[in-house]
Design a protein around this nucleic acid. Structure first.
Lengths: 220, 220
DNA sequence: TAAGAAAATGACTGCCCAGTCATATTTTTG
DNA sequence: CAAAAATATGACTGGGCAGTCATTTTCTTA
């Protein structure tokens, strides 16, 4: 998505740009994020930026791409078949998430805020289709557990998928409201999202989630 | 919150303004809503508006106030003690909500979108405290059921309250993803949010919610 | 080292916004 | 009916934004 000019840049300058923009989109929604402000901050001319990227959207999609790819490296190594039940698998995914979070805090910040970009008028449509894809993936996930005889059959798979989606995407909010952990502060500072003792609070929250979700999802 | 001048206006003009602004804030988040655009639309001068309201925020709070008051009239008549269990009470609240929705569609639209205004930088702080209040109320609600011996005791009351909060505020999204019901289209048109057959789809969704939440919340 | 290619620059366009204020119009009142 | 009070008006301020483009600077290469 970036132009050739961007790739020709010294790696350090590329990194500087990427980092600063990850930060911008972590703090502000798409429409509120200001390219002008970032460039002023970095001492880079407006015109230069547009030699690197076609548009704001191209930049945003690029960032989303690299973060997604990087996170996938962590999450993809966790395989469902290595776990006896869904919840141990689920838990392990979060453990990997914490690794990613600590090793790539800025990317982690960016990805955590992505759900909020839905509310940006300019990219709403983009996110509607993206949401549909997520839902399709989650539905397949849940269906698999139903097929294994582990999840209940009396509730529509899609409904369960929606619950899972809604609850998992709100874990940050959960941590703020339940533990008073100001996760957004960490993001503003560019620290790992779950900066407390290697994510101990997050794992506590995950375990609480599991307790709740188990009784909702598991076959009795 | 409005100035005296606003109250001196003929009722029909007041209504015209209120309706149009409810619509504006239903379609756009606080920061994206444009006073200028609305006034142009209504053929009212910028200066006049500022004789009616101190500021954009004063207007917004006024709208929030009148909508909240009106909805309370519907919801407050439903009393917990008139129902044998929480879920019948819960269900009845939604039935009243549908009444309100059909009789005051614009207000209903406004209130449904209010949760999205959280993401507006300008009023974020306002909403943070508002959220805390909602959570406190929900927590008391859940605590009451625990005290009655109807809800489980092994999960923190606050956590259950959070689940309830998160799930109930996403029912519109649920209806879009599960039933393909384009609720936002209704809002854009100023129709009742649940414009299909007196809210039949909503009640179906509520019943599905209850089925799911029951197994999560009820004492076994 | 000179010419041509690549990259950097920032003033500029055209758009949007909330809020102000001196002036003009309308309404009230004595 | 005239003076005073209330209301209406819209050009204007100062701010922000994405994106453009003619010009300058730097780098490459022959």
């Amino acid at each position: 998505m970036p132009k050739e000019t961007f790739h020709n840049l010294p790696a350090s300058k590329q990194q500087k740009l990427v980092d600063r923009f990850l930060r911008e989109f972590s703090i502000h929604r798409y429409d509120d994020a200001s390219i002008s402000a970032v460039l002023k901050d970095l001492g880079i001319a407006k015109g230069s930026f547009y030699q690197y990227f076609e548009s704001k959207l191209a930049l945003f999609l690029y960032l989303q791409g690299i973060c997604g790819t990087q996170k996938a490296k962590y999450v993809m190594q966790v395989k469902r078949e290595d776990f006896p039940d869904f919840w141990q698998y689920f838990r392990k995914l979060y453990e990997e998430g914490i690794q990613f979070d600590q090793q790539h805090p800025l990317m982690s910040n960016f990805l955590h805020q992505i759900i909020h970009h839905i509310h940006s008028p300019t990219i709403k449509k983009l996110y509607d289709t993206w949401l549909d894809q997520i839902m399709a993936a989650l539905t397949a996930w849940v269906q698999h557990e139903v097929d294994l005889g582990l999840f209940r059959k009396d509730i529509a798979v899609k409904s369960m998928a929606f619950f899972l989606f809604k609850i998992t995407t709100s874990i940050m909010e959960y941590m703020r409201l339940i533990y008073g952990l100001e996760v957004e502060e960490n993001i503003k500072k560019g620290l790992p999202v779950y900066a407390d003792e290697n994510g101990a609070t997050l794992m506590k929250a995950v375990d609480e989630y599991i307790l709740l979700l188990q009784s909702t999802f598991d076959k009795q």
